[in-house]
Design a binder for these strands. Structure first.
Length: 152
DNA sequence: GCCAACGTTGGC
DNA sequence: GCCAACGTTGGC
């Protein structure tokens, strides 16, 4: 099993929205960065995924989800009405992928970016590095465990 | 709203 | 292949 973190703007899709989606989970689409896409494609069913709220008042890790469907073609890239439409994506070899995520839990407290930056276990993680804009971030087992420990 | 840092595009 | 210009991300 692998561990990840995905960023989301709570105005668009918050941890509560993921919770509301229930057991069917929700399609995690709209990723338009190659490095992030490649990480999406590395996800396997059962992997754990931290949910991180970005571009908002309370930035940080808010909950946990799991992968319920491995990478498939992101439909929005072929939808001209979508902000995620990509005219240059070839249907014979689609550029962008999506996964399906299902809610596991919402943490009682936010683990703020400020706190994450102070954790030695996360020092090497792209999430806390200056200028990093990666929206899908891999977590090492020890990084994952350190986050969970910080939450208890 | 500001702006630093980054990724992508496209001319050459 | 270089690199300037541009658009986007995301913390503050």
């Amino acid at each position: 099993m692998k561990y990840w973190l995905v960023k989301t703007e709570p105005d668009e899709c918050s941890i509560d929205d993921i919770a509301k989606a229930g057991d069917k989970g929700m399609v995690w689409d709209g990723v338009r960065n190659y490095q992030a896409r490649n990480f999406l494609r590395d996800m396997n069913v059962g992997d754990h995924v931290f949910i991180y709220h970005s571009s908002c008042a309370k930035v940080g890790i808010v909950g946990l989800a799991e992968v319920t469907e491995e990478a498939f073609v992101d439909p929005l890239q072929f939808d001209p009405d979508s902000p995620y439409f990509d005219a240059k994506s070839n249907p014979d070899s689609p550029r962008w992928s999506a996964v399906r995520l299902r809610f596991k839990q919402k943490f009682q407290h936010l683990l703020a970016l400020q706190q994450l930056k102070q954790m030695p276990a996360l020092a090497a993680n792209p999430l806390v590095q200056k200028g990093s804009r990666l929206s899908v971030v891999p977590f090492q087992v020890k990084e994952y465990q350190a986050v969970l420990q910080q939450l208890t």
